[in-house]
Design a protein around this nucleic acid. Structure first.
Lengths: 217, 217
DNA sequence: AGAAAAATTGTCCATTTGGTCAAAAATTTA
DNA sequence: TAAATTTTTGACCAAATGGACAATTTTTCT
């Protein structure tokens, strides 16, 4: 019949599952898996608790679905790093993409942060296989750039760790950031981007000659 | 009578409260406030649940005491930054102190991270007053160094954010880091320190002349 | 030692919460 | 329109859990 609709779900099913997932993201990202209650999710999406359980078999399953549904999107910017591109440009672009996600998707960021913070019981496998493999590839690209003399000599792994840490910090610890800085969000992220751009430029540029022009003394 | 013992607690009280706090740190840092149960804490310290409630009036109070008991220690390295010292040395020292804490006190780091991640309901006040004030002072020091030409021109606030983010990342997201890198902890933190030292050196050194010696072309 | 105070515990309770289920309501299909 | 199917819900249950409390044991003090 309706082989076109994704996963063969009826209109109602797609709508309701969507509502539930959206509400679940709100609640899980704010409270974490355990503190989030089905009642909170139910209230947030205007359904009753048994109705939610008609669409998902358990609270854990909702959590799993939400987490998994966001995973690809979350890792996507990493795939955009191109071996063919200009090294520093590529890495600056990656940082900016991650920072943009922190600004526009803080709930998602917090959801992942919370999951990893508590041992990543549902993701450890993915981290150690899929993410690790992707990262290994990108680190190889960085090593290549370094060996070609297009990039200062840095550890690719730690470079990625620090980009993750610094960009996600503005989402995950926004309460702290906002307790210290009064700026509005636009200003804040503008400043952050400027700061991080400068940081990466200094970090990644070759020490002797900035840019490409070697200018002998 | 025993006016010397801190807070006038008996030997037994000091011992038991210590045990409870230690166990509570384990459990709270692993599970978070809500998922942690008094039974888990009781098991972890070898006491019964009612016995714990003899020393602390509620689970929330235990959490509050643990968090507060660690706060001073947590912020301490910030106070060590001296206006009189050599700027880059001071900031490298701060980074190293924070990194050392991530290595030696990952549970504490996770406890704070979790608290802030979920809106810092018990700390927002402290963040916005005490921490903010201390940080303002230290940022003023950095601005002073910058204006004196002893440091590259960077935003002090964002510099601190990035140092916090990068160092605490190795504790808070250790599961992810370890899923990606096989190194043992000593190696890992050794590499991290090297990487971060390099990063800060490049970030903070004045662009034209490294070190202090201006060597005209 | 004996009394007083402190510490410990077994038992119990109320609330929260994930989940069940049968019945009712709404929707789709024939 | 009537039957079949899907969706929704009110009522209910069992387990988990924070906490109360009286009784008992241990420690301290005189």
């Amino acid at each position: 019949m309706n082989a076109v609709t994704e996963k063969n779900l009826s209109r109602i099913q797609r709508e309701k599952r969507g509502k539930i997932q959206k509400a679940a993201l709100e609640v899980f990202s704010e409270y974490g898996l355990r503190s989030a209650t089905l009642d909170k999710i139910a209230t947030a999406c205007g359904l009753t608790k048994p109705n939610i359980l008609y669409y998902y078999s358990s609270k854990d399953q909702i959590y799993f679905e939400v987490l998994n549904g966001l995973l690809d999107e979350w890792v996507a910017p990493l795939h955009e790093i191109s071996k063919e591109g200009e090294p520093i440009e590529e890495l600056l672009g990656y940082m900016k993409a991650k920072l943009k996600m922190s600004k526009q998707k803080p709930k998602e960021s917090k959801l992942f942060a919370n999951e990893i913070l508590h041992g990543a019981p549902l993701m450890q496998n993915i981290l150690a296989t899929s993410l690790r493999q992707t990262l290994d590839e990108k680190v190889a690209v960085i090593d290549h750039w370094v060996s070609e003399g297009k990039l200062a000599n840095v550890s690719g792994y730690h470079l990625f760790f620090s980009i993750w840490a610094m960009t996600q910090h503005y989402a995950d610890f926004d309460v702290q950031v906002k307790a210290i800085l009064d700026k509005n969000e636009d200003e804040l992220f503008q400043d952050a981007e400027e700061y991080l751009t400068n940081l990466l430029l200094r970090m990644l540029s070759l020490p002797s000659n900035q840019n490409h022009s070697a200018e002998p003394c």
